[in-house]
Every structure is written in structure tokens, then in C-alpha cells.
């Protein structure tokens, strides 16, 4: 069920550097709550250099969601800001970190993107 989440963090850790986060430094902790259980992911960013661990440690920003919603967020089926406004995702601490982090989540998988006009095709 959290395959997508695990894959996302594993990829992030292996990348080691994410240019979209080049101006970002700080630690984010993702608390994925399911019943009595909470899974933790800790992402430390130092000017784009990224380390991921499963530690439950203090962080500048703490994000709380269900594991299912987080799967949807990282795969682009859900959007971070709307989840926050709906109350389905909670954020405490430095909001700028989550705004930056959210930008590296995938876009909607069915997005077509800009379409070139070709004469006679429309």
C-alpha cells in the first residue's frame, strides 16, 4: 500500500541532489498515521543535498497525513495545497519547506501538457 511512498523516498535518497531544492535547507519529518501506528520519514535538505532516513527526530517542518493520501500525493493523484486546505494533511513549523518539497512530487499521471496546433487536426 505504501509502495509508492517507499519508492519516492528511496529515489530521493539515491538522487542525493535535487536542483529544485537548491535554495532549501532544513529538515522535514513526514508522520504517516494509520490507526495506532505512525511511520516516520525524515528528509534532511542542505542546499539541495538530500538525506532520507526513518528517524523520529525533531524537524523544522512536520507533515501529518494518512499513508494512502501520501501515496496519492507523491504520485500526483492528489495535490499538497488542496490537501492542506481541506484539513487532510497537517503541517506544523516552517511552511516554506513543504511548499518547496511539494514541487518535486509528480504531476497528475494523466496530464497531456501543452498541445501543438496542427493545421487541419482540430
Amino acid at each position: 500500500m505504501t509502495d509508492a511512498t517507499t519508492r519516492f523516498f528511496d529515489d530521493l535518497d539515491q538522487q542525493g541532489y535535487q536542483p529544485l531544492l537548491a535554495k532549501v535547507s532544513g529538515a522535514l519529518r513526514f508522520d504517516l498515521h494509520e490507526g495506532p501506528q505512525t511511520m516516520h520519514w525524515l528528509v534532511r535538505i542542505d542546499r539541495g543535498n538530500i538525506q532520507v532516513s526513518r528517524e523520529d527526530m525533531e524537524a523544522d517542518t512536520v507533515i501529518g497525513t494518512s499513508p494512502a493520501l501520501f501515496d496519492d500525493l507523491v504520485t500526483g493523484h492528489e495535490n499538497g495545497l488542496t490537501a492542506l486546505l481541506r484539513g487532510d494533511m497537517t503541517v506544523t513549523g516552517d511552511a516554506r519547506l513543504v511548499v518547496q518539497m511539494e514541487r518535486i512530487f509528480a504531476g497528475p499521471p494523466d496530464a497531456r501538457g501543452p498541445q501543438r496546433y496542427r493545421k487541419g487536426m482540430q
Binding site: 495545497l81 481541506r86 511548499v99 518535486i104 497528475p108 501543452p114
Partner: peptide
């Protein structure tokens, strides 16, 4: 900081595009 990074047809986001409008109400949330 909010420059587009991916394709999203609903929000008309593209990589590199600068945003048009931000809202925080119920209609944006849902």
C-alpha cells in the same frame, strides 16, 4: 518559489510557468 515544475492540465501548470492566481477557499480546497 511557486514557479511550475510539472504538467497539470487542471491547474494549467507547466515547468517554468509563473502562476496566475492563488486562493485558499473551499472551492480551491475541493
Amino acid at each position: 518559489a511557486l514557479q511550475g515544475t510539472r504538467f497539470d492540465d487542471f491547474r494549467e501548470e507547466d515547468p517554468g510557468r509563473i502562476l496566475h492566481e492563488m486562493r485558499y477557499g473551499e472551492s480551491a480546497a475541493f
